[in-house]
């Protein structure tokens, strides 16, 4: 693992429409600053996040992936999508290890519509952690899965 000072990790964030996307918006409305490393993709529910989306992100050079949804147990707009996400992500983290991708690169968080600050903190933490981890091992030598 290299620690390059000028390395800027690329993060893909899948945010559920109802809580987490709204939380990210609130960070904006409150002008809470965080590093510009994340590209957000809106989905209706964290339960919609297919492992294939996450693998596609890593395959195309993402250094980290954030999946964020409504708080457990009862905030989910679709009753239980967040539970489904939590199970899927846990499984995928194990699978990533087998592919040579550190499971810490994939993070699942619950962010409510009033937690703009929390969202910003998560992005800051991820950027810091990914800087320590270094680039996505799949892209280091220009390789693909």
């Amino acid at each position: 693992m290299s620690e390059e000072s000028d390395f800027e990790p690329k993060i893909i964030g899948f945010l559920c429409n109802w809580c987490s996307y709204a939380g990210a918006d609130l960070a904006g409305v409150s002008r809470i600053q965080y590093p510009p490393n994340i590209r957000i993709i809106r989905v209706m529910c964290s339960g919609r996040v297919d492992p294939a989306f996450i693998l596609e992100a890593f395959k195309n050079g993402a250094d980290g992936v954030l999946v964020a949804g409504c708080h457990l147990p009862s905030d989910c707009h679709y009753i239980s999508g967040n539970f489904k996400a939590s199970r899927r992500i846990a499984l995928l983290q194990r699978l990533l290890q087998d592919l040579g991708i550190e499971p810490q690169r994939l993070r699942l968080e619950w962010v409510s519509a009033s937690e703009g600050d929390k969202f910003a903190t998560i992005v800051r933490e991820m950027v810091e952690q990914l800087k320590k981890l270094g680039p996505n091992p799949l892209t280091k030598d220009g390789g693909e899965i």
Partner: peptide, 18 residues
């Protein structure tokens, strides 16, 4: 494309990166 709430407002001091 949300380039205000999730971009210009949260990267005020980094115009190039934003």
């Amino acid at each position: 494309a949300n380039i205000r709430d999730q971009c210009s407002w949260v990267h005020v001091h980094q115009p190039k990166e934003a």
